[in-house]
Nucleic acid binder design. Structure first.
Lengths: 213, 213
DNA sequence: GCTGTAGTTTACAGAATTGTAAACAGTAAA
DNA sequence: TTTACTGTTTACAATTCTGTAAACTACAGC
């Protein structure tokens, strides 16, 4: 292999992470091979170990980067929705859902999580809930935080499901694999959730009591 | 290894599949090792290859069995809900959601699917939609099939998400990992969906037109 | 320029995994 | 009882993968 000029550690690590991310999208973290990453990044595989200590170290670093990026994209979309006019709310909400996918990072995030890398999931979700609650309050006035939690949960789980299903479930249900139809479901969900009042979200269950157990 | 008395092929295959299922719950299909399956099933690993042809063959057989069992449990729960009195509908609906989990088969099904085994997903989903539509019609009278599709999709994706997240997302959102609190979310979702009329499920989007593209 | 630090590569070790081949041993049927 | 079939095991081959060791080299600072 042609000897490469030295770069900064950051540049090398980013190149490795980029290559690893591409591979994880295709085969999942369990299928990630250092040799494949090295080939894609144009270097010899021991160099990866030099930079990340081990295969595990690489996966942990990837989980961190992917989680942070996805969280930032999502919270940005939520913040942007704060400024949307009433007519554009469905589009803004849809954009929030869409933002969970861009660049396959959502898929990688789920993959990583499924393989045990929780990294800073708790902090990331807290940021998303906070932003979502501000958005709900800007639309409906005073609303319950417990209902925001429920909605974020529902949407998060559904988005995770969509990422995982990779379109197969939608196809099986007649929604089609094409991105247009898949996006359609997200838009429908956005409109449905926007039409739900805070009162409708309160069921007979008392979540706050349960949480204080 | 102590030589074993001969059994029927079915018994041996079931023992292997049982062992494989346990392992996949823990480490996913990618982490399944023939030696581990063999140890758990109490036999030598070449015997697995004798029965299933290859590691891939074993995974395909497991995907089939798990998908069939999960579909049967879910459709049974839906059918049972048809007979529920009005007061018991939330409980019946919750039971439908719960039934996707029993015996870890839901988790295994998602794992398998994520690893590319689609087996007979389409047929299974068709059965679930059919049963769900009957249930909706018995409750609300004439309802649109397209809305049943949407609801089944939403619930399926959310359940897939819950299976995948393994409680971590819920914990991050303050719902807790304990089964009681996790079940609570499913009950909330059941009540929410039961309160939605068919009209509320129709948004400005015309799905039927889109599907005829 | 020289020197030290660190990014990079080659070569290799050690372990683990899937799959094969052949022998072995129950079981059922002739 | 003998024979044939097949479930089962042992031993092994071939590959693949992670991680180590040591050498090589680019670049920065003295």
């Amino acid at each position: 292999m042609a000897r490469k000029t030295h770069t900064t550690p950051e540049a090398a690590q980013n190149a490795i992470l980029d290559a690893a991310e591409k591979i994880v999208v295709e085969v999942g973290p369990a299928g990630l091979r250092l040799s494949a990453v090295a080939r894609s990044a144009g270097m010899a595989h021991p160099n990866i170990i030099h930079h990340f200590g081990s295969r595990e170290g690489l996966l942990a670093a990837l989980a961190d980067r992917v989680g942070a990026r996805a969280t930032e994209r999502i919270t940005n979309a939520i913040t942007a929705a704060l400024d949307a006019k009433e007519d554009d709310r469905v589009a803004a909400m849809t954009h929030i859902f869409d933002s969970a996918y861009q660049g396959d990072e959502g898929k990688v995030a789920v993959w990583m999580h499924l393989s045990g890398a929780e990294s800073s999931l708790k902090e990331n979700m807290a940021r998303i809930v906070e932003a979502s609650h501000r958005l709900r309050q800007s639309i409906d006035g005073e609303v319950k935080l417990s209902n925001t939690n429920r909605l974020v949960m529902l949407v998060t789980l559904a988005l995770v499901g969509e990422v995982v299903s990779g379109g197969a479930i939608k196809e099986a249900l007649g929604f089609g694999r094409e991105e247009a139809k898949r996006a359609h479901f997200r838009q429908w969900l956005a409109e449905l959730l926007l039409n739900l009042s805070d009162e409708e979200l309160d069921t007979s269950l008392d979540l706050d009591t349960l949480n204080s157990l």
